[in-house]
Simulated assay, not measured.
Amino acid sequence: MICIADIYHKNCIEQILNNGVYDKNPRPKYKDGTPAFTKFITHYVETYDISKNEFPIITLRQIAIKNAIKEILWIYQDQTSDLNVLKNKYNIHWWDDWESKTHPNTIGIRYGETVKRYDLMNKLLDGIKNDPYGRRHIINLWQENDFNESDGLKPCAFQTLFSVRDNFLDLMLIQRSSDLLVASSINCIQYVALQMMISKSCNLKPGKFTRVVNNLHIYDRHFESAKIILNREVGEQPILELNTNKTNFYEFTIDDFEIKNYKFQSPQIKFELGI
Rank of each mutant, 00 (worst) to 15 (best):
Y250A: 00
E241D: 13
D179M: 08
I75N: 06
K31D: 13
F209D: 02
V164Q: 10
Y219D: 08
L230V: 09
R165K: 09
E149K: 06
Y191P: 00
I92E: 10
Y30C: 08
D96M: 09
K270F: 13
L153F: 09
S185C: 08
F168V: 02
L153E: 04
K101H: 12
N167T: 10
I58C: 13
G112D: 05
E241G: 11
N11E: 15
R61K: 15
S201V: 04
N231W: 06
T253E: 10
I189H: 01
F257H: 01
Y118Q: 01
Q15V: 03
N245F: 08
H103T: 15
L180Q: 04
E14Q: 13
Q159P: 06
S163P: 03
I218D: 00
I109E: 12
K208F: 05
F40W: 13
R165T: 14
K123V: 02
L60P: 11
T210E: 04
V115T: 08
S184T: 13
T247L: 05
K10G: 04
W95R: 05
N122C: 00
Q79D: 02
D179P: 06
Y44S: 12
L194N: 02
I229F: 06
K200W: 04
Q159L: 14
L181A: 01
A64T: 05
N18Y: 03
T38L: 06
T247F: 01
H222L: 03
E54L: 01
L120G: 01
E258Y: 07
K129F: 00
S100A: 01
K260F: 12
W74A: 05
K70L: 02
A193V: 02
N243A: 08
N215C: 13
C156H: 07
A157F: 03
I50G: 05
T102M: 12
N130Y: 09
G112F: 03
K10Y: 04
K29H: 15
N19V: 05
G33I: 05
T47N: 09
G108D: 07
V45Y: 13
Y219I: 03
I254K: 02
R135A: 09
D119S: 12
K101T: 14
G20C: 02
P28T: 09
M172A: 15
Y76L: 13
A5D: 09
R27G: 14
N140R: 03
D131V: 10
H93M: 11
Y133V: 04
L273Q: 05
N130D: 06
M172Q: 15
N18T: 00
F223Q: 02
I174V: 10
N11F: 04
A183T: 06
Q268A: 14
K246Q: 10
I7A: 08
Y8V: 14
P132S: 07
L83W: 08
D131W: 10
N187Q: 06
F40K: 11
G127I: 11
K270H: 14
T253Y: 01
N88T: 04
K87W: 07
T244A: 01
R211G: 03
T247K: 12
E236Y: 11
V21E: 09
K208H: 01
I139H: 08
F162K: 05
S100Q: 00
E241H: 06
C202H: 00
F257Y: 02
V234W: 10
N203D: 08
K66M: 11
L194V: 09
V213T: 11
